[in-house]
Design a protein around this nucleic acid. Structure first.
Lengths: 172, 172
DNA sequence: GTCTATACCGAGATAGAC
DNA sequence: GTCTATCTCGGTATAGAC
């Protein structure tokens, strides 16, 4: 999926890479979409754990930003979004996880922003989480196309904002 | 492409919908990727004209926001991004247009923000353009998955920001 | 549980008649 | 310029032997 796109992840090729017969894909996953759903679930569970870790770390804002702004996560996510566009089973799966992620993010960061003295009347946690997620995702997409006008300045601005609230990033 | 995704736009089906033989796709576009490139170009040219109009209108910020936050544009764009992910010819085409769009946006809006008294040292035009684009795109993607946590508040915030600079949107 | 064999389909592309 | 005919490939899926 990463190297050649989801369309290249066919029963035959997946089986070949696993060193196994292609009939087994049907045997274990029922259909190729079933395989994609399983794959997504496994990745999403892992991501969710990483999210929990980040949100409960010493510098949750920094950790959150670094997590969502990680290229290696994002490429597969994009692939799944593309795949999901026209396949209901996968779409529903992604939608459910997205809501779960957003809720966890908002719940955790609500307290964090509160502690940092952010006025939640003017800057609701939902809005801040959406904006940070949006910026991160958008920059990563553009970067994958070698388009980067305004990227450095935007990333600097985000980091400055986080640093104002949470202080400089301490060594990992 | 819109209804079933780019993968459904095959030589045979495109020809069938045009009421024509599938061999003609090769004849006119050389290959299926050639067809996608042509299609993208035609749409991009149109979009660029609309962008120019928006940026030179009475309320450029409002017009810009409404243009990029239009669902009907975005769906096809997403389809092309997915398609481009692993096809170099299309990728390069999109990348070039993206830069051209970004440059036009920044050039026009630089003067606009200046006129509105925005301090460009703190808020470079590039950053504002990237952030607005990011928010718009991200919300549209999520909406297509029926995920909308925090959307209303975020859109309200954007509109409030634009209204502060440019006044309420006047009747079209 | 894993394989072979195979059915069935439709993709992209091209040669060549008209 | 458009068609028919056809090639070649590889996709998903299933039946049934082992």
């Amino acid at each position: 999926m990463l190297r050649e796109g989801y369309a290249a992840a066919t029963t035959r090729r997946v089986a070949a890479e696993a060193g196994v017969n292609s009939a087994l894909v049907s045997y274990y996953f029922e259909s190729i979409d079933g395989m994609f759903v399983e794959l997504f679930r496994r990745g999403a569970e892992q991501s969710f754990e990483r999210l929990q870790e980040a949100l409960s770390s010493e510098q949750p804002l920094w950790a959150f930003w670094e997590l969502i702004h990680d290229q290696s996560n994002s490429a597969l996510t994009m692939e799944f979004i593309a795949l999901a566009n026209h396949r209901k089973a996968i779409r529903d799966e992604i939608a459910e996880y997205s809501r779960r992620f957003r809720r966890a993010q908002v719940d955790s960061l609500h307290e964090v922003f509160d502690r940092y003295g952010v006025d939640s009347a003017h800057w609701p946690t939902e809005v801040l989480v959406v904006i940070l997620s949006a910026i991160s995702r958008y920059l990563l997409i553009e970067k994958s196309f070698d388009v980067d006008i305004g990227h450095a300045e935007t990333e600097a601005m985000v980091r400055r904002y986080i640093a104002e609230l949470e202080g400089e990033r301490s060594a990992a």
